[in-house]
Amino acid sequence: MRNIGISIIIILLSVFLFYDTFSIEVAESEEIGPVMWPRILLISLFVFGFTLLVQSLYRLKKESAEKSGDRFDAVKFWGFLILIILYIPALTYIGFIIATPIWIFILAFIAGMRKVLPLILTPLIGTAVVTFLFPVLLRISMPRGVGIMREVSYFFY
């Protein structure tokens, strides 16, 4: 089923992007312009997407017979995914130095860490190590957040 979904997305995406190539400005003098290459790719993508769809429909019966043995832990998967997505605005507003230990704490908890001491120490040590390694030692600038969060970050890097 996943293959069918992916192939349909690929077909729709190739059609949509092919349509979008008509909005790319091309100078009339340009024979080999910026549009030819993407169009070749999109036509090929459509063909292979369609092939995958046919293949997947053909194999649908077989796939349903052989049930996937993969484990799916909804709490861990969705927990991680949502936190990963929320980490982006957290970096913008709260800043790296404050958001990171909070996120490591929640991620570790979701992943299965239950002992109190490791739950406190892992985020602190983890943040200390990455802060020392990247913003301090390698001078890689990480987001500082806004307002008071920004001021706090200056104490560390």
């Binding site: 991680f80 990963i84 980490y87 990171t100 996120w103 490591i104 991620l107 570790a108 992943a111 860490m113 490791p118 892992t122 983890g126 990455v130």
Partner: peptide, 8 residues
């Protein structure tokens, strides 16, 4: 421990 650190 490893998973959250890789995310960061």
């Amino acid at each position: 421990i490893i998973g959250p650190m890789i995310v960061i």
